[in-house]
Design a protein around this nucleic acid. Structure first.
Length: 667
DNA sequence: GCGATCAGGT
DNA sequence: CACACCTGATCGC
């Protein structure tokens, strides 16, 4: 879930995907896609009032996003304020301060993000450099090189900052099967089921969100049918989607929902209550799209998992995997990268630190361990707060735009690897301390990638990290609990970012983020949609109310004879591991049971898996409480010692006075 | 009555 | 299996 606070420090007068709090004062708004966690405040009365009193404030988004947004009456008041933009066509936008008349021009380009219908990234080009806000996105490896507007000529544009959908920026999510592989698995499963008889139907147990449409269109295309959904008004102007969805329940593929749909399914009923016209019980399987991921060296498992007599999970991801993100970032090599999502189980500090390694000029810091106080170079004079953004001034102007050609992906990857002082097959950061406040380097061992998807989240959750000093990008990234300081209103003040000095890197000493990630729930309903029953359908059966179907209990897919074990596409395996040579799609026989990870194996791999599981279980323990101190942490570097309070206060005094802070250098 | 927030669910 | 929602309870206005 996005915890982006809405503003970029380069262009703080615009707000993106966040419309509450400070964002109420923006000169322009941008909506990357129509998911609730990116629409906070968007239907708020405050914003509505502001719009009515403004003559220049607009909301920019794609045409599709506009369409989806306005299909919900709660957002209808936006109609006259939305300025939809074409994809891939740079547009100049004037940001006007209506009070002073002050104006700033900005060129924005919408880039398709592959997350859900209408989803885009925003590329901003203006006086403060090129900034890419990714929104939520899924790019496959190599995709960045195919985007025209990320290049000028044959070179990659010089990107100052990427605001990144870092949902899966964690080595645990090293690999997620590609869209195509996942889709093929689902097509195969669905095909094998619905071809058995007209009474064999599939229920796609999708979340209430946009993003599954390409699944619908592909299924519809493949099986020459339509998918039953609850409403389709939002797609009225999108024939490519509209033609594959229907409110007619007489189809073998359903993606309809009902508040109690799980119960329905347990009772062999579809959420829409549909039955066969002749009374023959339907045989329903459910397919629940869900994210499956695999560690770096983990044997690839199936994209379809049987989870019950007639239930399946199918791999599906709206977001790029870790390796896809790394590919993306290593291609762009921005100066700064800020996460807009903190993956579960990680802290902002950890993610930021890992991302820093993907920044331009930072790869040589792969050897960086920790320098106690040694990086304090100059004092800061006028800096009310120290923020973890402050290092962005450190590397300004140091380098030219790297020569990278379009499609030069492999080359780039090689470069990246070559830049790593440690020649290892491991991802760069895996041998690094994730945060300086975390115990020892390698306390978390990412080398032994999670070999199972079953890891629990028992750790980290509300790890109190910190002190409240130095908000900085903590402020930009989140908005909660930022306490009292008026002067830190969530945005860098102009001129505050001091480009000439090398400010102390406070984040190396103190973590600055609090982990109150509590902006999860928007209680609005995007879909207040009432399905319009098609007149021609309502006479299908006299009895369509779900309640009338409870009697006959035939387990739909009990299946002694359900041997859908798909020998499947033994195609694209990189064959480095012969023992990873498994079908993409494999459906376990019912008798094999799939309820536990230990059961997730076929005969030829059971041994390996068993040992893999062991490996996971013997992983180092989580951080103990005592290792995460509540106030601020001085990391325990071997040669360093804990500063005494009087030493610290002396240091503070010097800094406050603007004196040069001389620190002992070790060797 | 409304919005914001949280807990708990899928 | 960790995304993008739901619902329902509680609180403040």
């Amino acid at each position: 879930m996005s915890s982006f606070a809405g503003r970029m420090k380069e262009y703080p007068t615009v707000s993106l995907d966040r419309f509450d709090r400070e964002n109420l004062h923006a000169r322009a708004y941008f909506l990357s896609h129509c998911h609730k966690d990116h629409m906070k405040g968007l239907k708020g009365p405050k914003l509505k009032r502001k719009l009515q009193s403004s003559r220049t404030v607009r909301l920019y988004c794609s045409f599709v996003t506009k369409e989806l947004l306005l299909s919900n009456p709660k957002y209808a008041f936006w109609e006259e304020y939305i300025l939809p933009l074409e994809l891939e066509s740079p547009t100049q936008i004037s940001l006007v301060d209506e009070a002073s008349g002050e104006k700033e021009d900005l060129v924005v380009t919408l880039l398709p993000a592959g997350h859900c219908p209408g989803s885009v990234m925003f590329l901003f080009e203006g006086s403060q450099g090129n900034v890419l806000y990714t929104g939520d996105f899924r790019f496959a490896v190599g995709d960045a090189s195919r985007i025209e507007h990320l290049h000028s000529g044959s070179r990659v544009k010089d990107i100052q900052t990427v605001y990144l959908d870092s949902t899966f920026y964690d080595p645990r999510f090293y690999q997620i099967p590609t869209r195509e592989v996942c889709l093929n698995g689902i097509l195969e499963l669905v095909g094998n089921w619905i071809t058995q008889s007209p009474y064999h139907v599939v229920w796609l147990n999708c979340k209430a969100a946009y993003g599954y449409e390409y699944l619908f269109t592909n299924l519809g295309e493949e099986f020459n049918t339509q998918i039953h959904v609850r409403s389709l008004g939002m797609f009225n102007k999108m024939p490519d989607i509209l033609s594959y969805v229907t409110t007619d329940r007489r189809t073998q593929i359903h993606a309809c929902r009902h508040p109690k749909d799980e119960e329905f399914f347990q009772g062999s009923r579809l959420p829409c209550g549909c039955t066969a016209s002749d009374g023959t019980p339907l045989r329903i399987i459910s397919i629940k799209p869900s994210t499956m991921w695999f560690g770096e060296r983990m044997r690839k498992t199936n994209v379809i998992i049987k989870t019950g007599a007639s239930s399946f999970r199918a791999c599906f991801s709206f977001h790029s995997s870790y390796s896809e993100l790394k590919d993306f970032l290593s291609y762009l090599r921005p100066v700064n990268i800020y996460p807009s999502v903190i993956p579960i189980g990680l802290t902002l500090t950890q993610v930021s630190q890992m991302l820093r390694l993907m920044c331009r000029n930072q790869s040589d810091q792969a050897a960086f361990v920790y320098k106690p106080l040694g990086v304090l170079k100059r004092s800061m004079v006028e800096r009310p707060t120290y923020d973890s953004d402050s290092d962005d001034g450190l590397f300004d102007g140091l380098d030219l735009e790297p020569v990278r050609k379009k499609m030069g992906l492999n080359q780039d990857l090689e470069n990246v690897k070559a830049q790593s002082p440690q020649k290892t097959a491991l991802p760069l950061e895996e041998s690094l301390p994730l945060t300086v406040t975390d115990t020892q380097p390698g306390a978390r061992n990412y080398v032994d990638c999670t070999e199972s998807n079953d890891e629990e989240e028992d750790e980290g959750e509300t790890k109190e990290e910190e002190d409240d000093e130095g908000k900085g990008d903590a402020e930009l990234m989140k908005e909660e609990e930022m306490t009292t300081k008026e002067e830190v209103n969530g945005v860098m003040k102009e001129g505050e970012s001091n480009k000439e000095t090398n400010p102390p890197k406070w984040e190396d000493f103190f973590t600055t983020e609090t982990l109150t990630d509590s902006q999860n729930s928007l209680n609005s309903q995007l879909q207040s949609c009432c399905s319009v029953p098609s007149p021609s359908l309502s006479r299908m059966t006299g009895s369509q109310t779900p309640e009338l179907f409870s009697e006959e209990e035939e387990t739909p897919a009990d299946d002694g004879n359900f041997s859908l074990t798909l020998s499947a596409s033994l195609s694209n395996h990189s064959s480095q591991n012969l023992d990873s040579y498994l079908p993409d799609t494999l459906i376990l026989h019912p008798e094999q049971g799939v309820h536990e990870q230990g059961d997730l194996k076929t005969d030829d791999m059971s041994q390996e898996n068993a040992s893999d599981v062991q490996k996971v279980q013997s992983e180092p323990e989580e951080l103990s409480e005592s290792q995460v101190s509540s106030d601020f942490d001085i990391p325990s570097t071997p040669e360093s010692k804990m500063p005494r309070p009087d030493e610290l206060s002396q240091l503070y005094r010097k800094l406050a006075a603007g004196e040069e802070v001389v620190t002992r250098k070790r060797d």
